[in-house]
């Protein structure tokens, strides 16, 4: 009769089929690694994610190309004041006012597509440690998001600046502030990706999460940025996510926060949304 590792005989029926191999012993680390592996497979095989990432890249690079080409072609028609105010890095990275939508949507889709298809139930049956699932997703979105963001912003920066020549001022990566702006922009996109992820976990619906992102990143800034800069304005508007992001990549911050503090406040937003998402995940059904 067959025996198991400890030498105890096992019934023939059980021995006939090899047991599903399991990593032993189970530690929090091995559990975490298993969740991470599972999330990675899901992430890799989701077509809508690839499409969003690719269109975000193409959009950013294309827009940088278009805008810089426009300035190069029209440089001589710009007034003296406009020429004096021209900052090649700021103009070249202007797409960062819009690209956060792609990264936010990317993060949100990682969660909401699972709710949309009902796959989330399978995920939670496989891993009842729900916060662990969300944390694994966040880790992957953070790492991959930062990689994608860095590639996107750098490529767009280089292509944009390569369009500017002659009388038009242009920047090289070695210029003071250029590398910082690119890095700040990549950080901003990564944080919006994470914000999108946790908003998605809160909303559990693609439409709601994306509407919230649109509100935060396109409508609110347009609505309040040009209000008179009174006392209330100075203590609220600079803390909008879009304005915190602006501080991270733009040289002209005006009334807004300095880059380092802006980065910290934005990270705080992510942490608070994450905490809310984790807390609700524990108590909610489904």
């Amino acid at each position: 009769m067959p025996t198991d590792t400890s030498g105890t005989p096992v019934p023939a029926a059980r021995a006939r089929r090899p047991p599903v191999p399991r990593h032993a012993p189970v530690t929090p680390l091995s559990r975490g690694r298993a969740v991470l592996a599972s999330e990675w497979i899901k992430l890799r095989s989701l077509r809508s994610l690839r499409a969003t990432a690719l269109s975000g890249f193409a959009f950013s690079v294309g827009l940088a190309f278009l805008v810089c080409s426009g300035f190069q072609a029209r440089w001589h028609t710009l007034g003296a004041q406009a020429q004096a105010h021209f900052r090649p890095v700021d103009t070249g990275l202007g797409f960062l006012q819009i690209t956060p939508l792609f990264f936010g949507a990317l993060g949100a889709l990682v969660v909401t597509t699972e709710y949309g298809t009902g796959q989330i139930r399978g995920t939670f049956v496989a891993t009842p440690q729900r916060p662990l699932v969300l944390a694994a997703k966040a880790l992957l979105v953070g790492l991959l998001g930062f990689g994608l963001a860095l590639v996107t912003v750098s490529a767009a920066f280089l292509l944009g600046q390569s369009r500017l020549s002659g009388a038009t001022p242009h920047a090289s990566p070695a210029d003071s502030g250029a590398a910082g702006a690119v890095l700040g922009g990549a950080l901003y996109l990564t944080l919006t990706g994470l914000l999108g992820l946790f908003l998605g976990a809160l909303a559990r619906s693609t439409a709601v999460a994306i509407s919230a992102l649109l509100c935060l990143f396109t409508i609110l800034p347009v609505l309040v940025n040009n209000l008179p800069k009174g006392f209330v304005w100075r203590h609220t508007v600079p803390y909008l996510p879009s304005n915190l992001g602006f501080s991270l990549w733009h040289s002209h911050v005006g009334f807004l926060l300095r880059p380092v503090s802006a980065g910290c406040v934005l990270a705080l937003y992510v942490v608070v949304t994450a905490a809310a998402g984790m807390a609700l995940l524990r108590t909610r059904d489904g």
């Binding site: 809508s48 827009l63 300035f71 006012q97 819009i98 693609t206 396109t218 409508i219």
Partner: peptide, 26 residues
């Protein structure tokens, strides 16, 4: 739903932001 929302808000919200980045004459 996602495509429809993307198209609508792309045209209404994102397009003006994109155009706003171009040199003012354009």
């Amino acid at each position: 739903t996602p495509l429809g929302l993307a198209a609508l808000f792309g045209v209404l919200l994102v397009l003006p932001l994109m155009v706003g980045l171009l040199p003012s004459g354009l």
